[in-house]
Design a protein around this nucleic acid. Structure first.
Lengths: 338, 338
DNA sequence: CCGGGTCATTGAAGCGCTTCGACTGAGTTG
DNA sequence: CAACTCAGTCGAAGCGCTTCAATGACCCGG
């Protein structure tokens, strides 16, 4: 194993000079720099991560805590994780993957041991038990998702309240008066997951303003549960002509069932989805949708955390503006005035 | 920040004693151990990861390299990643998340810097450019997936050749003679991804033995591309009564299209999928399928790598036996002899 | 030709931990 | 009872790096 000292000897300089060449924290003359870089290359030197971390109290690692559950939004989580990992690399950081399993204990372990310089948490609940620990951890933290109380926290999320309102606007604008919301599994609402709750609030609030009738039905995502939910929806509100779906797994079943029942999309019913663009574009009917900007969320989270690590950057809540793309699944309500 | 030395002072022992209490590498008397543990708790001590890594040349980190692409099997990758992370924790290791982006450079960086004690690579191609580096890295490595040449490597994978054969057996046993294979996107085969190629080999080999006619069509996974592929299949082989699907995204479109064309499953055509059980169980027709044991693969990979780190454990290829679960999507061929 | 400033480089002091060898005293053995 | 073992503890030497204060070399204006 090649060490700094060996590089220094090979290049005929002191160890500290090599270190400064590597870090760029002091000016080094051209010739010296070149000699050192040459030696590094020749010897195949790689700085030892542990020694660096010890001497500088910086590990250059960002911890990413992903939810253990895989009951929702798996592709989104994966895309966020990958975006975090690649963006972190461009800033010189590696990513440590923590699962929610250990819960608050993981936070304590990582912040205590200096394993990571900062943390990014996903799948934040409205009253998350990890939050108190974060508020007085010495490591900077960024949340992907929005808890109830954001004081002293930095968060990134799609503005789901605005997303709900946007969906309501779109359908109302097309003349739909009775809207059904096909949501995530009931468990997701029960554990007070922010995005699901907020979307619903946004939908309800705007529906009230616009005088729409709104019916919310959680859905497990299986074909069977979708069939059940759909039957109950048309049973209770036969005049339903607009659907908002926030559950990737339920999309295909919904479209398939509507087709089976002879309800044409978008002629008889309109469907708006809240899902990644790729999913919307691949469905049997190209779906009008509000995109989940997973990549952007991961990227922003890293950038916020890096800014904090570098001293600038403050606590802020970065809400991404939702964008609705109109595709082939939404059109004028069948009985609307022209 | 609390250090070992402070704990030692607080407990009235030497630093080395505290260290031995922590590691258990030397015997410590009951009273002393208790005193030290008490001090650790009172002071809220957490060993510093960097210092540990430097002194012991062990980081207690396993690097996991996941593919950057998200064009296939995303939920499977995620499940493997989560299984790796949780299993690693039970052995005292954390997981560093690397994306394929950096390619071989990431391998060099991690092995060179001692950032990780071992590596697990996913999405291995038949002729993977990272393999030469691994063969003479000092860190143990385990591959999830099977390259062409496994000499000197440790691998975990579902036995996809046997999986293909099993699907052929199942359909042949039900009297089907003409089988269509709906595969992954063409790009997956072009980059020689092991699992896709091997499944096909297994299918072809057994089909030949059993005298089945086999038609393979790659598929992007969108509804549109599935429609195209299906049209070409029935065009070319109108007598097709059996389907093998190895592409999660294509499952729903396939079932939906078959229904639209008035072909009943399993009365007119039988479908066997190669996918996680959850997906098979949630489809509109409960699918007969060979499960992808994602969790098991992740777990096994960690256990193999930990065994290597502990000195026992040798190079071996662990192929998991495929299991076919018969559900509602496969039945006797319509024109078969009773 | 000297005081003051800048630039490039160095030596040495740690960072917090693990681990080796040495030491002690109690228990065992011939 | 001397010789020996062994469990339990300690001191000290690093692990490979960063960083601070110090040292020269050099240039400038006065």
């Amino acid at each position: 194993m090649v060490t700094l000292a060996e590089v220094a000897r090979h290049a005929g300089v002191s160890a500290s000079t090599v270190s400064y060449v590597l870090s760029g924290k002091r000016s080094i003359s051209g010739p010296t720099r070149e000699r050192v870089e040459q030696s590094i290359k020749e010897l195949g030197y790689h700085p030892n991560a542990g020694a660096r971390a010890l001497a500088s109290s910086r590990s250059n690692i960002i911890a990413l805590m992903v939810p253990l559950r895989t009951d929702m939004y798996v592709p989104v989580m994966m895309e966020i994780a990958i975006a975090v990992a690649t963006t972190a690399r461009t800033h010189g950081y590696d990513v440590l993957l923590l699962t929610g399993e250990e819960g608050p204990a993981a936070v304590r372990r990582v912040t205590g041991s200096g394993l990571a310089d900062a943390m990014i948490l996903m799948d934040v609940e409205l009253e998350d038990e990890r939050l108190p620990l974060l508020r007085d951890a010495r490591q900077p933290t960024v949340l992907i998702g929005l808890p109830a109380d954001t004081v002293g926290l930095t968060c990134v999320d799609l503005d789901f309240t605005a997303t709900g309102a946007l969906c309501a606007d779109h359908l109302a604008g097309l003349g739909h008066r009775e809207i059904a919301v096909v949501g995530e599994a009931a468990a997701v609402y029960e554990r007070h997951t922010g995005f699901a709750v907020r979307t619903l609030e946004g939908l309800r609030g705007r529906a009230r303003e616009l005088g729409l009738r709104l019916l919310h039905r959680p859905c497990e995502g299986s074909y069977e549960s979708m069939a059940g939910a759909l039957a109950r929806i048309f049973d209770e509100r036969p005049g339903t002509t607009g659907f908002v779906v926030q559950n990737e797994a339920a999309i295909d079943p919904l479209l398939s069932l509507l087709r089976q029942q002879g309800r044409a999309v978008p002629e008889d019913v309109s469907v708006v989805a809240i899902c990644p663009d790729q999913v919307a574009a691949q469905a049997s009917v190209r779906l009008s949708s509000v995109a989940i900007p997973a990549h952007e969320m991961g990227r922003r989270a890293v950038e916020l955390v890096v800014a904090k690590l570098e001293g600038h950057g403050s606590d802020e809540v970065a809400l991404l503006e939702p964008e609705l793309t109109v595709r082939a699944s939404s059109g004028p309500a069948p009985n609307a005035a022209p």
